[in-house]
Simulated assay, not measured.
Amino acid sequence: MKLNRYFFILLAFVLAYGLFEFYRPKPIDWSASYRNTDKIPFGTRALYELLPSVMGQASVKNVRLPVYNFLTESKPVTPSNYVFVARSLRFDDNDVRQLLRYVARGNGVFLSAYYFPDTLGRVLGFRALVKPPRLKDTLLTNQFTNPALQKRGGYNFFHDDGRNYLVTKDARNTVVLARNSRNEPTYLRIRYGKGFFYIHNLPLALTNFFVLDRKTSDYAFKALSYLPARPTYWDEYQKQGRFDDDEQSVFRYVLSQPALTWAYYLLVVGLILYALLAGKRTQRVIPVVEPPRNTSLEFVQTVGRVYYQQGDHNHLGQKMIQFFLAHLRERYGLVTTTLDAEFAEALSRRTGVEVSDAQDLVQALQAARRTVTLSEEDVLILNGKIENFRQAVAG
């Protein structure tokens, strides 16, 4: 019962801590996740939910597959758009080849990130560069090159440090759609085959904080207005991997929630300490096992007292001889069928007593066996010789 009590106390403490962490007011999370499920300032849930109206569609399909798998296995409709918003885009060579084929057939790919794959940049003729930290500028503004989309004073995204910009080498197929106040490109449209790549270098501008801020709320929609209104796919694989929310395991969900994660770790540590400390303190005491007692001597003494009290000295003497010979057989391996001179010598050799003492004892045993009725005195004499023999052997 004591073990169960400790366990339930630990379990109650962990549950209480987990509930407290889960329901207490959360501090604002300023990390940039760019996830379409996040309501934090730098998630993209607002843009994802408003995007269908911009694209003139009932909904935008959420994609949780690598580019190669999606474009080869799902076979998206043509023409269509494929939108990526992330801090960094990671494509392997197979992904890049499939993206190029997809755009060449007349589709559009919108890529908003600070860092792009070099393989894609070499094919399309652009590079994404970053200035040294000493040149950061949070007051830097951005402006569209199309006068119809421009805003007086430009757009300032003060949570961005202003160090990222684009460089283009293919003036024939590339159009600069937006620049910063240093006249550096931040948004490009690059023709490839029958379609276009839209390279946007300011993903923070598309997050909840700036989409919902009155001063910058129209920037994201102006940037996406260059995409034709048609079926659109939104990539979440770059940020959340393959599994949708309904495919998440319980353990994966626990680790995705900070409060539940800490409660889980606390439970594991508590169980380990419980096993090491409580289990060691409450283990059962090892019982003391006494060695088996030799009751043969007690039995002999009891039988002797019975015969002595009844005055049956003859039976007492005979039993004494039987027990003594049985002792010689078990202890020294002697054959006690015939008690003669040869037996006396064997007894002397096995026990180490003098031959004369052994012969004297054997003669006493023979005499006692031949006597029809042993008296009390005969029994005492026989017992004395046996005890002397035992003491000689023990000495």
Rank of each mutant, 00 (worst) to 15 (best):
Y219K: 01
W234L: 04
T232W: 09
R230M: 11
E236A: 09
S225T: 15
V211E: 04
P228V: 12
L204H: 06
R242S: 14
Y226R: 04
R230P: 01
Y219F: 03
W234I: 01
A205H: 00
D218A: 01
K215F: 03
A229N: 11
E236R: 01
Y219V: 08
D235S: 04
W234D: 09
D218R: 00
R242I: 14
F209C: 15
Y233Q: 12
L206D: 05
L212V: 01
Y233I: 11
Q240P: 05
G241E: 13
K239S: 12
R214Q: 05
T216V: 12
A205S: 09
L224V: 08
N208C: 01
P231F: 07
D218K: 00
K215V: 05
S225M: 08
D213G: 12
Y226N: 02
N208A: 00
S225K: 08
R230G: 10
A229W: 06
Y237D: 14
G241A: 15
S225Q: 10
L212Y: 01
P231T: 13
F210G: 02
R230Y: 07
L227P: 04
A229H: 07
T232P: 00
T232Y: 07
Y226Q: 03
R242F: 14
L206A: 03
S217E: 14
E236D: 15
K215Q: 13
D213N: 13
Y233L: 10
L227H: 05
R230S: 11
F221W: 08
E236V: 00
S217F: 02
F221P: 03
A205Q: 03
A205Y: 00
L206K: 03
P228Y: 06
L212D: 00
D218Y: 00
Y226F: 02
Y226A: 05
F209V: 13
A205E: 05
L224E: 07
S217R: 09
K215A: 11
R242G: 12
V211T: 03
D213Q: 14
L204V: 15
R230N: 11
F221E: 12
D235T: 00
A205D: 05
